[in-house]
Every structure is written in C-alpha cells, then in structure tokens.
Design a protein around this nucleic acid. Sequence first.
RNA 1: GGCCCCGUCGUCUAGUGGUUAGGACACAGGUCUUUCACACCUGCAACACGGGUUCGAGUCCCGUCGGGGUCACCA
Length: 514
Amino acid sequence: MSVRTRFAPSPTGFLHIGGVRTALFNWLLARHHGGQFVLRIDDTDQQRHVERAVSLILDGFRWMGMDWDEGPEVGGDHGPYFQSQRGHLYREAADRLVASGRVYRDYSTEAERAADKAAAEAEKRAYRFRRKPLTDDQLEQYEKEGRPYALRFEVPVGQTLVVNDLIKGPVEMKTDEVADFVIVRPDGSPLYNFASVVDDAEMKITHVVRAEEHLTNTFPQLLIFEALGYPLPQFAHVPYVAAPGSKKKLSKRDGAVGLHEFINEGYLPEGMLNYLARLGWSYDETTEMFSRADLIEKFTLDRVNSSPASHDPDKLFWIEGEWMKVADLDRKVSLTAPYIRNADEFVAWSRRRKNQKEDPPAAEHQEILPFLQQPAEVSESEAGRYRQVIEALGDRLKVASDIIKLGRYFFAEEISYDPDAVKKRLRKEGVPAILEAIQGILAEVEPYDLATLEERIKGYAEAQGEGIGKVVNAVRVATTGQGVGPGLYDCLVILGRESCIDRIAQTRAMLAES
RNA sequence: GGCCCCGUCGUCUAGUGGUUAGGACACAGGUCUUUCACACCUGCAACACGGGUUCGAGUCCCGUCGGGGUCACCA
C-alpha cells in the first residue's frame, strides 16, 4: 500500500513556519516513498472558510514547492477536501457509532457540567465527564420536549491504550484518564477529534504526522478508529518549534515567524526548505546542505528529533546565503528586479513590519507583496545592467531584497549619503583635493575600463604618497554614498564616466558647503 | 493539580555502555584585502541535578528540577 500523508490547516491564512515544517515533513515522507500528499482544509467549527485565507495557504505551499496530489484546486478521489463540505460523511459515521452503542446522547447542560467541574476542583480531583445513567422516564421526558443533546463517546474504563509513535516511541495512556468526549454538537456539527478521524480514514491516510500538541488527542481518536472498524494509521508527533534562544514555544511575538515575511524579504525557497528540514531533523553528523532532491531521497521519520528545536534566524540566513551563492545569474536578475522597481514600497513595508508588534500580525504581513506576485519581465537591455550589478555584488547578496540595501545607488539618479560613511571617509584632511584630482582623471582616462581605472588611481595615490585606502574609500563614498559595497573599480565602471564625474562634483560641493 | 512528552556547547545537531564528546551557525582573534562580503586558519563553548546498575555511563533504571503539551459542545 502506498504511503499517504496529509496536512490539514485551519484557514486562518497565517502560515507559521512551524506549521510549514510539519507540512514539509509530511510532504517529504510522501515523496520519499513515492506516495501521495493530500491537503485538506480543516474549516469545521462553523468558521466557514475564507477564500482569501485558503489562497494564502496555497500560495505558500506553491512557493515552497510542496505540491499536493489531492486537495483544493486539484481535487482527488477522496474529496471534498474542505471539512465544511463533508457533513454527510460525519453524519454517516456518527450514525454507525450510535447504532453500535459506543456513543450516547448527552442531554447535560452547560450549567450542569460547570457545576460538576467546580465540585471536582473543590475536591482536588480531576474532572472527567462520565455517562450518567438516565431513567427511562427522564429519557422519555427529554425526548418528548425535544431537549437538545450532544453525541458523546463512551470511553471504556480499565484499559490501557498504546500508540507506537514513530517519533516519540511507544506512549501509553489509561482509558481512566480519558473522559467521555463529544463527537457531535447538538446542532449536528462534528468536533475535531471525530471529524479528523473520519477524514483520515476515508482519505486512506497511512501516516498521520502532526504537531506534538495532538499527542494526547490520539487516544480518543484511537477509540474512534477502532469503533468504526477503520484500520489504524501510523502516528508521528513532531515537537514544537521554540523561540530563538529559548525553549518556549515560538509565537508571533518572536519576530518574523510567518512564511510570507520571508517570501517578501526575498528568501529563496531552497533556503527555507533546507533550513526547515534541518530544524529537528538530521541526516548524519556533518551534512548541512540539502537540495530538494537530497531531502526527498534522505528524509526518514526516524531521524526526526524527539525534543523541541528552537528557530535560529542566523542559521536560516546562512543557509539562505549558501543557496544564493549558487543561484543562476539570470534568476537573481528576475528575483531582484521587482525590489528595485518598487523600492519605496518595499522600504515602507519593511519599516512597518519592523515596528509592528501586534499579535496576530496585520493582514498585510501575511500576504505576498503585490509586486512579487507576477514574474518580473526584464528587457534584455535592462538585464545587462542588473547582471553587472549582481555580479559586482557577488556573495554580498544574500536575500533578493538586499539589492536595495546594497545596490540601490546603481539605479537611482540621486545619491543618498550614509552619514557615518561621510564622517568616516570624507570629513578628512586632504579629501577634497583627492576628489578633485580623481574627477580630473576620470574625465580623461582612456579607455574607461576596470584595469585602466585601477592603474591610474593606484598610480595617483602612489605619486601623492597617499594611502590607497584613503583614496579608494573617499571615492567610493563620493560616488555611491555608501561606506560598503562592491569593489570600487566595479562601481566606477557600472556607474559610467558621466555619472561618476557628476557625483564627485556633487559631493565636493556638499563638502565645500558645510 | 492529574496525565503525557522532552532535557548534549548560546543555537541546530552527531552520539544507541569504553570517543581527547564530533560537525554546523553565532561569537572572538587572525590571514587575504580599498570597504563590506566571501574564503581560509585559530579559539571559546555542552552531556540539567542526585542516586543507582555496571569493571566502565551522555548512552540503562529511579528520583528531583526545568521546559512543553493536554485535561472544551477549539482546531
């Protein structure tokens, strides 16, 4: 039988990287075994699914390259793939459970349950709902008055349930610890523990890989599988993702935790995939870099750690940089171009994101930036300049949006000066004279190319007895406004003779003024 | 509180009774260098604690402490 896994998000629209990792493990497991990965939208609880929220989830999956064999948009033989549309299946299963006598009508009221709970607490006793026998009269009376009832599963006491978790190992639970639980509300809507079992069984899921918080949920679920006569899937509970530098569960307050924030910053899917896979999983003692194909080939659940892992933005950034290093030049062009074209919009987004501390994040931080949604068309003439800039930037470009921080001045008319750089490199004895001389050299140097520029500027520094560093740094700030960047001669060539002369003149004027 | 899960450098991890406890990120110092980045070298740094079992425990058992989850007519 082929391996079938699933991911069943609630349509909140927010894709937490912890959830993405769980989905990734499911996807990897299915792909590793040549099985199927199904996507199901868990939109019970009357919170009807929101189109927008669903498409945000799908966009995130598409971006990660986690394709689903069955689910929204693609359909499949086990649909529908929205819980809100599977009511008939839950009803049919509930009927079978009632007929088998494993489930009973619970006429209790909220007030009664609250009172029982309070009494239990007063006695320092754990509260667990158990069936209270009703007399025939009472029953008849309730039925006659049409009193609403929930359907509750009668848990057999005195047994021990065991789940052989593929990550945690064998875990036992006494049924005495499991209260009778509701499977269907008085209004007929199913509850998660019930719906989830029906769905997993009907969808022929063989491996339920989900967050650790569901571990204790699996015991009531076991009972339902058994009562319904469904074969049991394998279970694997993956530990939570902790906040950076802590063992506390990662929350929205811990900085960027939504997938869309990384997409918007221009991370590569390869980087995210590699990082998330390594968070809680390892292949051997040394390998850090894994391509998608490596992951599919090597991923197994037995190498998933049973203890929580904390999110490490530094490591993510490093892995991202490694993948950016090997990315194709033309790909980098189409990845960076949208940022340059929408620089102001990106900078504004970035600033708002930095300032925002709300929980949950504002809707805009859960969406892919509008200008990233269509592939950028870069004309051949434009591409030439992008290629030059990106090549000059080299490994300095880690995420696509770095183009703004690192190379915006190649595309902007106006230069904006970094105050620190001005202070450190331009407000120095002799700098105006150096700039004047270099401006002169640039005006007449022939040919205006990298080797000649380097030769002339070095020659000038030597003749003047100036340190080459002083000259180069001054010219860099004068032409780019920035203290850091690609090699100076690269900058001069890309910017071009006219532009460099203009910028140096402008800088000299600025220095003379103040 | 009951029950369940978890506990190796700051972080990700290797480790399945005998290792100088290995690798990676981060950090520090250095080499290269016009800045930054890259690369390379060096360094810092861990078995939560206490009892057992054993000739020998990071590895096995018990307890303590710590973290997490769950005890819903949420998912």
